[in-house]
């Protein structure tokens, strides 16, 4: 269980995390989504006590991280930035961390085998590929058999086989009743792994709901219509929050209105419809829609619209 409450972090004049409040529950995989630079890594560092929050608190399994007397048994963490001495072998890296908690060599060997680093455990970590580095990071996180896992972009650099492996590993860990909190900027990945989502943009909470709810919420607002009077229809539907696009002649995709509203508008103006279909958007589209206003490095000229963070 991870509980953030009003969590805020300033780096100089820049606010990296802005009043985040959320709860990550055990038993399911919770995805932590946001564009690059939205504050995901900072939030994780605050939870782990690496950085001190400017305001607010982060509580893990009922305590502040720094107050644990055996933190590796409580929380396993994989940080996005590499956190391994490049001159040390994978085995000695794990052993040194294990020894702080009196964890034995057999556990280290067990983890090395589990993540598939058996053949390279004696090699200096600086010679590792990105994928091998990720596996070492995952072994580090699992070392203490922790109740809570915090993984920052765990699939980064993994090959397809590795990605498949980490997905089933995470689901398995959650099924055992652990809290699994996984950040990513890849929606497609979260769609396959996560049950719940916490979405942030520019350090602020945008959404905290199940993956299904998240997709549904966005899906209700996209409708495909086919009509011989398509041009007339798009004039009728025009409004400030409505975007109408046309892929084929006579076919419109309407963003921002439900199927009901489109049908009623057509009837009121006597417009013939040949098709009226609410579209299922992908998680990716839903995410893009929600975070469009919150992407930090936007192409110049794109309008900075709506402040409707569904907090």
């Amino acid at each position: 269980m991870i509980e953030a409450s009003g969590l805020t972090k300033d780096y100089g004049a820049k606010r990296a995390v802005d009043g985040l409040t959320f709860t990550v529950r055990p038993g399911v995989v919770t995805g932590f989504l946001g564009p690059n630079g939205s504050g995901k890594s900072t939030t994780m560092r605050l939870v782990l006590g690496l950085d001190a929050p400017t305001a607010g608190t982060a509580i893990v399994n009922g305590k502040r991280y720094r107050d644990f007397s055996a933190p590796l048994h409580e929380v396993g963490a994989l940080l996005e930035a590499r956190s391994v001495h490049t001159g040390r072998s994978a085995y000695h890296h794990l052993l040194a961390l294990a020894q702080t908690h009196g964890i034995g060599k057999s556990r280290v060997t067990e983890l090395v085998d589990l993540v598939g680093l058996h053949d390279v455990a004696g090699k200096r970590a600086g010679e590792f590929s990105l994928g091998m580095g990720q596996r070492l990071g995952i072994a580090t996180a699992l070392l203490g058999d922790p109740a809570t896992l915090l993984l920052d972009e765990p699939v980064n650099g993994l090959d397809p086989e590795g990605i498949h492996w980490i997905r089933s590993l995470l689901k398995g860990l959650a099924a055992e009743g652990r809290t699994v909190f996984v950040s990513s900027h890849l929606m497609s990945e979260m769609e396959l792994t996560a049950d719940r989502l916490i979405v942030i943009g520019r350090g602020r909470l945008i959404a905290d709901m199940s993956v299904d709810e998240f997709v549904q919420q966005a899906s209700g607002k996209v409708v495909r219509v086919r009509s011989p009077q398509a041009e007339r229809l798009s004039e009728v539907l025009a409004g400030p929050d409505v975007v109408v696009t046309s892929a084929d002649r006579g076919t419109l995709e309407i963003h921002g209105l439900t199927a009901e509203l489109v049908g009623e508008a057509a009837a009121a103006h006597g417009i013939v419809l040949h098709e009226l279909t609410p579209l299922q958007v992908t998680l990716e589209e839903a995410f893009m829609d929600l975070t469009r206003a919150d992407v930090e490095f936007r192409a110049v000229g794109a309008p900075a619209k709506k402040e409707e963070a569904a907090a």
């Binding site: 007397s69 055996a70 009196g102 556990r107 067990e110 053949d119 203490g144 089933s168």
Partner: peptide, 24 residues
């Protein structure tokens, strides 16, 4: 490198100890 093809469950850790100065 060898790759763990299928997900292996994480083996439980039987004995759990605290951080002590001597261990550090």
């Amino acid at each position: 490198m060898s790759v763990a093809g299928t997900a292996s469950a994480l083996p439980r850790l039987e004995r759990k100890g605290k951080v002590t100065q001597l261990r550090v």
